[in-house]
């Protein structure tokens, strides 16, 4: 008995103090992904990467909005959203205290405006994404004149761009043909 008590004494207290003291995790512990909506450009890379479909995006063409949604109840904390996020809007935190009574509290949503095409007027990409692309181009060293043209070019949807290119191409062909006939 004394021997046992000695073993107990030597072992000391192993129980962690958790609810009364902060929990200690290793720095690599992956907890709730913290989302910074101001930094998000709604590129949907996270939604593509998410293996559990905890991250989803939905476009509403009538309202011209894109809604990003995170359902933490389905998240498996793999960190792939953090890996692919180009603007570091999602960073996995150490937060693990996620229990809720109401399922609605597990959802996080953010709504972004879509950019309407300058030519056909249809919404085609989030405005913040286009602004970020422009900012990156400026950082990469584009001049002021170039930026003016790019600003217009970036605000035209892919279909209109394709049609414009095709029209340019056709008119060049026509010009070539007419000059050949002469």
């Amino acid at each position: 008995m004394l021997k046992l008590l000695k073993i107990v004494k030597d072992a000391g207290e192993v129980t962690i103090k958790y609810p009364f003291a902060p929990a200690n995790f290793t720095p690599a512990f992956r907890g709730k992904p913290e989302y910074n909506p101001a930094q998000c450009i709604a590129c949907s890379a996270c939604a593509v990467a998410c293996p559990a479909n905890a991250l989803t995006v939905e476009t509403d063409l009538e309202k011209g909005t894109l809604t990003w949604q995170f359902f933490v109840g389905r998240c498996i904390y793999c960190g792939r959203c953090e890996e692919v996020c180009p603007t570091r809007a999602i960073v996995l935190s150490q937060n693990f205290e996620l229990a809720v009574f109401n399922k609605e509290d597990l959802y996080e949503r953010a709504t972004f405006k879509l950019c309407h095409c300058l030519e056909c007027g249809r919404p085609f990409a989030p405005q913040k994404q286009i602004d970020y692309a422009l900012a990156l181009t400026a950082q990469a060293g584009a001049g002021a004149d170039e930026m003016e043209t790019l600003k217009i070019q970036f605000a035209i949807c892919p279909e209109c761009k394709r049609r414009n290119h095709l029209n340019d191409h056709l008119s060049t062909l026509c010009d070539l043909q007419t000059s050949g006939e002469k």
């Binding site: 930094q39 205290e97 996080e108």
Partner: peptide, 21 residues
């Protein structure tokens, strides 16, 4: 203990933009 997590809903504000890294 108290519940800490609350549902969030963000709507894009005017002039909101991502900062460059």
């Amino acid at each position: 203990l108290e519940q800490k997590l609350k549902g969030k809903n963000h709507v894009e504000e005017e002039g909101e933009g991502a900062e460059l890294i």
